[in-house]
Nucleic acid binder design. Structure first.
Lengths: 121, 121
DNA sequence: GGCTATATATAGATCAGCTATATATAAAAG
DNA sequence: CTTTTATATATAGCTGATCTATATATAGCC
């Protein structure tokens, strides 16, 4: 049971996860990475080489905004979600919910062993 | 709201869907395609060019087994799930549930508009 | 000074799913 | 009976999100 989630499964929902994290509060990349890892019991282990290109893409799409902060020793690039980003998040979340319900219906019959829940954030 | 689910979102779970359909009863490709479309209110519209390679892959992996049937006019390739396939399905379904729970926790705060449920199969 | 953790960046590889196309034939339309 | 449509499967080649590997830079610790 232990081990990370198959990355193919995460494809298409990582954008949404990042936007979701930023919808709660401003973050910089390295912290988001840890936050995701912690919130998922190490099951979602987003690699730096995956995360930073996603952030750049989201910024190019104007869904997030960045600013460098060098005041506290280390220089960090802080990100905020934009109004367009919040709309996008809402749209993606609805699509996600819809898809999940479809799968749940299909899987209705499948016998699942007891599974541990993700830690609450 | 209408429109098909973004295919990037389905990546990684199509295998599981096919196995899930076959876990209920034997099927041939063309019928699976329609079944998926109907069960998802046209939102999951798996193209033939996607479906058949998946079936070949699943068969190569010994998760499903096939036999041609030419008795009823049209020739059709019927598929059955194997014991290994059922194990694989169970494994993937658990991973799916785990991942869904993680996402749900992350999305906890996101405001969702009322959404239509998938038609029950 | 050397090592580890922090912090960001990017080129290149991988592969699931898509598009487009091909083949074949039963059934329906004309 | 010929044409069209729906059924049924197959596959070559494209796309793009994610991964691997690598690079840079520096704060903090021993």
């Amino acid at each position: 049971m232990t081990g990370t989630i198959n990355s193919e499964l995460m494809r298409g929902s990582l954008n949404m996860m990042i936007l979701s994290i930023l919808a709660e509060e401003s973050q910089y990349g390295y912290l988001m990475q840890q936050k995701l890892r912690d919130a998922s019991r190490e099951m979602v282990d987003l690699k730096a080489g995956t995360l930073y290109p996603i952030l750049h893409r989201l910024e190019a799409d104007k869904f997030i905004r960045s600013r460098w902060d060098k005041s506290s020793g280390r220089k960090r690039k802080w990100y905020d979600i934009t109004v367009a980003g919040k709309k996008q998040l809402s749209k993606q979340a609805i699509e996600w919910q819809t898809y999940v319900e479809c799968i749940q219906n299909l899987l209705g019959q499948v016998n699942l062993s007891p599974k541990p829940a993700c830690r609450q954030t």
